[in-house]
Amino acid sequence: MTTKTASLVQQRQAPLCEQYAKSPSDARIFDGAHTLNACSDDPFHGWVVPNHGSGESMLFGIHSAVGGDHDFPNPGDLLSAGLAACLDATLRMVASHMAIPLKSVQVAVAAECDVRGCLMVDPGVAVGFQRLRCSVNLVPEGDIDARKLNNLLAAAESCCVVMQTLRGGVSVVTELETLEAEQAHTGAAEIQV
């Protein structure tokens, strides 16, 4: 009798699933990011810091279609990167659960936006991306039938947090806080491009 060894994904996720079944409140996570207070004469560049990770800031730029230099990743690029990263990791984790060995996975995301809405050129054009396209290139290890790969993709899509958030929409609340001038300069970063 052969005993199947649990994959790394199964070893890590099985105890979490048990814990969340017993204590659903433990399953709530909080991700985020913040910009650094970098008020300058250049509104087309800034710094953003993801809340989790190394604490490294990332320089961002603004797309040339709205007046920026498009010399650094812009917010649309960062949104696309979030979707690509989430779908890529979800595909690999679900493949592990389904015992589908993969040689490689590559996810490319293209985001399409008509900027006339955000520039208030045409009030009939909605502000936001009108379409996101994900291209998934899976190379299985060995001969895996197409139906099984399609089932893998469907399962990954249904479990991909970022994809499902974008497809379903989410409530976004904005709160305005005003800071004293002294506090506003704390943590300011000099932007050099």
Results as ranks from 00 to 15, higher is better:
residue 27 A to W: 10
residue 90 T to S: 01
residue 31 D to N: 15
residue 74 N to T: 06
residue 154 A to T: 15
residue 183 Q to F: 00
residue 153 L to P: 04
residue 48 V to P: 03
residue 78 L to C: 04
residue 71 D to H: 12
residue 146 A to F: 04
residue 190 E to A: 11
residue 89 A to P: 01
residue 174 T to M: 13
residue 120 M to K: 09
residue 42 D to T: 00
residue 142 G to Y: 06
residue 18 E to V: 10
residue 18 E to I: 08
residue 76 G to H: 04
residue 185 H to K: 14
residue 159 C to F: 04
residue 156 A to K: 03
residue 107 V to M: 11
residue 46 G to S: 15
residue 51 N to F: 12
residue 160 C to K: 03
residue 117 G to C: 06
residue 46 G to T: 14
residue 132 L to M: 05
residue 42 D to F: 00
residue 148 K to T: 13
residue 189 A to L: 11
residue 138 L to F: 12
residue 193 V to C: 14
residue 76 G to Q: 08
residue 188 A to H: 11
residue 187 G to E: 10
residue 44 F to P: 03
residue 83 L to S: 03
residue 103 K to F: 02
residue 21 A to E: 11
residue 144 I to D: 07
residue 82 G to T: 04
residue 27 A to Q: 11
residue 116 R to E: 02
residue 114 D to H: 01
residue 28 R to K: 15
residue 84 A to V: 01
residue 21 A to C: 06
residue 192 Q to C: 02
residue 39 C to Y: 14
residue 18 E to Y: 03
residue 165 T to A: 15
residue 12 R to N: 10
residue 110 A to I: 00
residue 64 S to E: 12
residue 96 S to Q: 02
residue 60 F to M: 14
residue 39 C to M: 13
residue 37 N to M: 14
residue 62 I to E: 03
residue 167 R to D: 12
residue 118 C to Q: 00
residue 28 R to H: 15
residue 77 D to P: 06
residue 180 E to Q: 11
residue 137 N to G: 05
residue 39 C to I: 10
residue 55 G to I: 12
residue 139 V to P: 08
residue 146 A to L: 12
residue 146 A to Y: 03
residue 173 V to N: 12
residue 30 F to W: 08
residue 94 V to R: 03
residue 130 Q to F: 00
residue 69 D to L: 09
residue 132 L to V: 00
residue 88 D to P: 02
residue 101 P to Y: 02
residue 143 D to V: 04
residue 43 P to Q: 07
residue 181 A to L: 09
residue 50 P to G: 08
residue 110 A to L: 03
residue 64 S to Y: 02
residue 15 P to Y: 09
residue 126 A to F: 02
residue 183 Q to P: 00
residue 55 G to S: 13
